[in-house]
Design a protein around this nucleic acid. Structure first.
Lengths: 236, 236
DNA sequence: GAAATAGTGTCTTTGAGACAATATATG
DNA sequence: CATATATTGTCTCAAAGACACTATTTC
């Protein structure tokens, strides 16, 4: 038995976050790549990358595939955000969209090169987008900012090793406020493993490099932990 | 343009929580109504109430409708839980289910009378259920228990006015541990409005009745607040 | 006034945050 | 040794929790 519907289309869309310098302040800030639509509805508007779910793939796989196909990016973290299913959210047809949000590292972000159809926008300065995509991004931003405060999600923006200042600057970029270096250190250091290496070259005391203690996951999503995708962090 | 799929069915399922006395301890505990399946797959197994999403209704409306049709219950709180979309989660067909969770008050819970096809189970003592419904319930339980600690969601189990002991017993039932009455009072009292009424009749000092300060919502779901359904609490 | 729950007071511990002080590189 | 950031130390304040104590009703 296959239900009485069949005229509902199922799509996925993904809010992709990466950190880059803010054009005016120079500080690290959140950016999002958007794609230009080529057809109606909302022809030529900017929209979240996404596409249809095929029968042969799970929804999280569909999100990862669409993410890569539209932006050439592979995410280090990918989590379901929310399913949007109001009747009138897509003019001209009934579409239920399952939204995901993703975090990518700077190297990956560079792969989503700007083009006629892909452009990066500051997460807090978006133009009006197609469909309900402004609302979806608002919600993803809220979730990211909330989650940075009670989990180690910030790690997904960084490589395998990092200094405490680098980690702090990720938090500052996401939360949009300065954090006290001394207090920040005391909060996160117990969850980290120091390495033997330091970063020399600056004209000041060289900071130590840390790595995450992999024994605990990045985020506690309860019984759903396994449904969230986290790329393995390189062995070194 | 309608996508390249069309062989994916979209369903909703809802985890309904109500409080009732535990059969052995007598304390308040979480119960869930389940429905017996009548067809394969999983014929005669117990399953979450739910059904197909029709093209004419939003997904949250579909959840509310299925909830009522299968159990005669109207929820005071209804929130989206998660979209489950693994390829193999439903033998014999591709089904993506959007799960919701609901809280109902005791009066409403009584409307879901036991029958051959509807039975209430203790949330922590469930038999093996159809599909991935055990996992869905585990996640709903986790979300409820997490949310009780940082929001006022417990209110959805109670009427318009209540004593602090009644509210504390809701928290205790959900969290499965005793809470100190004095400390509990100090934590929640600032969010409540006292009424002039007290409850007399017990052979002890009569407790005051409180109502919620409606100026703040039950839960902060960020930019999605409006997508969550809360029944209005009666004026009195 | 005995019993039972309602409600208040108080002490301890813990964590967050502000901010001073010390450490160690480079040039 | 001047500079700049790294790292440690210390103080204050607020919230959580344990638990003693007082208040008010019914029987």
């Amino acid at each position: 038995m296959n239900g009485t519907q069949g005229d509902i289309s199922l799509a996925v869309s993904t809010v992709i976050f990466a950190l880059r310098a803010h054009p005016t302040t120079g500080l690290s800030a959140l950016w999002i790549p958007l794609v230009r639509r080529t057809r109606d509805p909302f022809g030529s508007s900017w929209a979240l990358p996404g596409g249809w779910v095929t029968a042969a793939e799970g929804i999280v796989d569909a999100a990862a595939r669409n993410l890569f196909e539209t932006t050439s990016v592979e995410a280090t973290y990918l989590e379901q955000l929310y399913a949007f299913g109001d009747v009138d959210r897509s003019p001209g047809g009934r579409v239920v969209s399952i939204a995901y949000w993703a975090l990518v590292r700077p190297e990956q972000a560079q792969r989503a090169t700007e083009s006629e159809n892909v452009r990066w926008f500051l997460a807090d300065e978006l133009p009006p987008l197609a469909f309900d995509h402004n609302m979806i991004i608002d919600y993803a931003l809220w979730r990211l900012r909330t989650k940075v405060e009670y989990s180690r999600i910030a790690h997904a923006f960084l490589g395998a090793t990092f200094t405490l200042t680098e980690l702090r600057e990720v938090h500052e970029a996401v939360l949009q406020r300065a954090l006290d270096p001394a207090n920040f250190r005391r909060q996160v250091e117990p969850t980290l493993s120091p390495t033997d290496a330091v970063v020399s070259g600056g004209r000041h005391r060289p900071p130590r490099l840390y790595r995450y203690d992999e024994s605990n996951g990045l985020v506690d999503n309860g019984p759903l932990g396994q449904n969230t995708r986290s790329a393995r962090v390189g062995i070194n």
